[in-house]
Design a binder for these strands. Sequence first.
DNA 1: TAACGATTTTGACATACATCAAAAAATGCA
DNA 2: TGCATTTTTTGATGTATGTCAAAATCGTTA
Lengths: 185, 185
Amino acid sequence: MNPLIQQLKRYGHLNEEIEKDIEQRINYFSKRKGEHFLKEGQHISSYFVLSKGLIRAYFFKNGRELNSWFGEENQIFGSILPVYTDKPSFENIQFLEDSEVYAISVADLNDLYRKYPELNLIGRKIAEEVCIVLEERILSLHTESALERYHSLIKLQPNLLNRVNLGHIASYLGITQETLSRIRR
Amino acid sequence: MNPLIQQLKRYGHLNEEIEKDIEQRINYFSKRKGEHFLKEGQHISSYFVLSKGLIRAYFFKNGRELNSWFGEENQIFGSILPVYTDKPSFENIQFLEDSEVYAISVADLNDLYRKYPELNLIGRKIAEEVCIVLEERILSLHTESALERYHSLIKLQPNLLNRVNLGHIASYLGITQETLSRIRR
DNA sequence: TAACGATTTTGACATACATCAAAAAATGCA
DNA sequence: TGCATTTTTTGATGTATGTCAAAATCGTTA
């Protein structure tokens, strides 16, 4: 089954007609490490799933890159701002490994919501789950020390350590690479 | 019109039948400053709106209170964890002024989603809007200094300064009251 | 295996914020 | 108006993390 369809079905039922309609609108990409999926300022965006690979979202602040999240296989994600509003993205999305992507555009998604209102149940569940994830991140940033945030991250995404360098992780945690190196010791 | 219904209508259409059904399930409370609406560990929870008053959500970390958000008039809110999952709340919700509340329980809400699937559109829009708000908070905590976070907060909720003491604001910002006092100077 | 570039660690020092105690100012109430 | 309580500010000092530079380590490829 299409990996994006598979993820959608985790949130609610899809009848055959809807499933076919969605499937026709899903685009497959194969991307090399280092390529971008989305650059800041773009309006167009999508929900997507990686069947293979790794992705990061990052933005610039005072000339330096800050990672906002990492995406691994079989999660559904997208850049929140352009997916949930009509505003352009402030983040860039880049592949950190050679990756295979299944994506559906926001335009198609909105079409589908109009055509099949029952899809809003799945859309609601997804947004609600995103809220939970975001709230955990807020809690971590609000209350934890750098070391605690590090532990929270590797608890949530344990494979990350083997897949990205420490500079990326430090930037996600909001500390410098030097500090991360020291607190890990 | 019922203030909670009014808020719901900002996100999508409600026909008369649904509106009546919802309205019958909305509870009105009048609460005094200092009283609690929700205590940590409780399972039951609700979406609610203040027609008058002010509320804070807070939790304990290492024996001290940390504020997670403030709610003012004519916003729809709830404690994310119990509203969007079946887990108990880790936060407490307390009135900071004498308040008037219109609330609908999660149980009733789920009933309504089942009875009127078209309500999922409104539920989706609300959850999506919550995502946007949470993402801004993450951005602020991730990238801003204490002073910048202070400015972000008063830009977002300018009335708060006249309504709550600086200790509450410092705790929301993740700094001590002494530091807030100093950086304001 | 050598050599190069990328990544990680270490060192010296600077800065932002925390802590604890106390003083000052503001607020509420008798 | 005056007093008690709460809130805010100030001071002295400690700690976590940042900055910049350099050294050490690791991984890749010639």
